[in-house]
Design a protein around this nucleic acid. Structure first.
Lengths: 203, 203, 203, 203
DNA sequence: CATGAATGAGATTTCATTCAT
DNA sequence: GATGAATGAAATCTCATTCAT
């Protein structure tokens, strides 16, 4: 006999929980946000949440996975529209610049940062972080740089891995300051400045 | 009744507690670290800790204040040794580069980052953050840049405030990634790259 | 509306549930075993289980009833093969001796013992226990002893009720220790010793 | 500086908790009795209980240890008053006979039995049970029997270990039935009968 | 001032039972 | 009848803070 509800139904419910959890975690932080907060915010019962995730931490990890994977995949796909290395780098800066004022994005940045701290203290999660930095983030930039070197667009002699690390550290650093200080931080101008600086250094 | 112990005794004890708290907060995070952890680590009794600080949060805030104030004061003092803007900027990068491998510094970065997140959620603390960004951090860089412009060393047309924001965002971003990923992150190379890139953009 | 499935189907399904519940209760204890354990073990859905039993406790009681009734009925029937009191007593000891190493039996003993504890705390169940001790257990032994006295096989002056109580207490005590300590307990030898001792005392 | 309260104070408090826990566990069973029950019964706060024991299970184990150790030690000491094997065995039966009607003892028996079931499911606890059976229980009886054989009081050819196992199985079996059925069970008569039977078999 | 036992609010998690499909 | 997702009461345990000694 077939299951009573469809897989799609369950996937949707899972996402729903994750979405509400993101908001709660962003608002109070992972530790301070309680399961009851998620219950209140999502109007999904406590028991139900625990049939989809076996612990609060699992929600956290699922949340980070989903956000990272989906956003990176979208990014990579969009990058195919550009066939010029500098344009690609420029495009990524622009994508982040466009996030200015988007509450959900700033929430994600906060939760992301907190997750980094959290994961850096847990051997298993730390490995996940390291792997992800490599797989999802660094490789994207390294590929672009190496491509740019072949076409002669990029002449920088610097180690592509180091450049990739720096690239994401800047994105993170700027995004983090912004999400903490909000309107006090001239986000768009800073991102623009960073873009020019980074691109200048590549040429 | 006259004070039973000297002010100096009290100050020393306070510092002691703060020092141990830093380690505990770095190791487990502010929320996860318990007063009992600090008790165990410092061998100072719970009751005693509560005579010096009226809550766990107060220890946290005192810790952030002391670290920021003392480190910035030292930095500013050291900067007077250089009378060239680029050299000053270069020097600050070098100061951070030198922290590579220093556990205490990485601990401080973690605690600092977590405090940012924490403070960004509390109106009062958030204001403190904003003020401090202005007073302790941005002004240092803005002063150097404006000085450099006067002497002609710096020709960049960019807004000094924006440059200052970017400067600290890079320092934070790089430092944070390093403290989370540790030996997996080529910290010194990245800082060096950042230094060259930033200085190039100023000229 | 006529019944959708046959009575026989229902009876079989009930037994099936009981059989799986026995194993789960034996493995973890009544309280610790969950309905989900029974679901997993029996592959019968939770909803289904609740159409046959209206609570977890009801499964427990049904389980005890069925096991007691069926095993005692079988025992009484088999006893008719012997027409000598001592032989009958001896036979019962042998029946228990034969259980050595039988997992299902040891499971039953554990569940049985736990049920005793459970029932002793509930007035209604306690009465059931008392009635059953009388109806199913004591009377069997009392009848044998009285028969034996008539034929002169048994000369003991002791109160048959007391002897019957002692008989079952020994069987229980030995079985319980065995099911808890398993291979560490020399079950067959102890049962044999008990048999000789008990029979000697009757003569 | 010395601890704020004496070791003796702490030991007394521990005992107090154990004493109240015994009553709660006896009344409802270990699983069904809650920490809140113990709180209500003892009027000691939940937090306090957890400073003396780190889990509900730890209370259980401490409870069993204390009861077993203290009662066995007392028994062994009292046995030295008798220098005749049969008298010693007789004395032990009498000790148990004297417990008739003592609520605390019946509570202990129930909790003891439940602990047996509980421990038989946990490898670590099971080993504790096996060791204790050997150390505290069997050895006492084996020593008496071997002594009795030397003096010629006991002529039974049976294995002393088997006799010891049977002895305690009878004590347990009778005690357990009694504590479950209470006034419905002719405890003193059954114990008396068991004593005569067991002693007869030794001679 | 120092100490650490005591407190209890509150957090996470479990699970028997219900009920819409 | 069968299914298993949903529910929420209740259980265990933690920990910041207090306060008597």
């Amino acid at each position: 006999m077939p299951p009573v509800v469809s897989d799609e139904y369950r996937a949707r419910k899972r996402s729903e929980i994750i979405e509400h959890a993101l908001i709660c975690f962003a608002e109070k932080g992972f530790q301070a946000a309680t399961i009851d907060d998620i219950v209140k915010h999502s109007k999904i019962s406590k028991g139900s949440i625990y049939t989809y995730f076996k612990s609060k931490e699992e929600i956290y990890i699922a949340l980070m996975n989903e956000k990272t994977v989906s956003s990176t995949e979208r990014l990579i796909e969009e990058l195919t529209k550009y066939d010029n290395a500098i344009e690609k780098i420029s495009f990524i800066f622009d994508v982040y610049k466009m996030q200015a004022g988007r509450g959900t994005w700033m929430d994600t940045v906060k939760v992301h940062t907190e997750f980094y701290l959290h994961a850096s203290r847990d051997p298993e999660l730390r490995q996940l972080l390291i792997d992800r930095a490599e797989t999802y983030y660094n490789s994207v930039i390294i590929n672009i740089i190496e491509e740019g070197k072949k076409t002669g667009e990029i002449t920088s002699k610097s180690n592509p891995d180091v450049l990739a690390r720096l690239f994401w550290s800047i994105i993170n650093g700027v995004g983090f300051q912004y999400s903490a200080l909000e309107e006090q931080y001239p986000y768009e101008e800073v991102i623009e400045e960073a873009k020019e600086m980074f691109i200048a250094s590549l040429k």
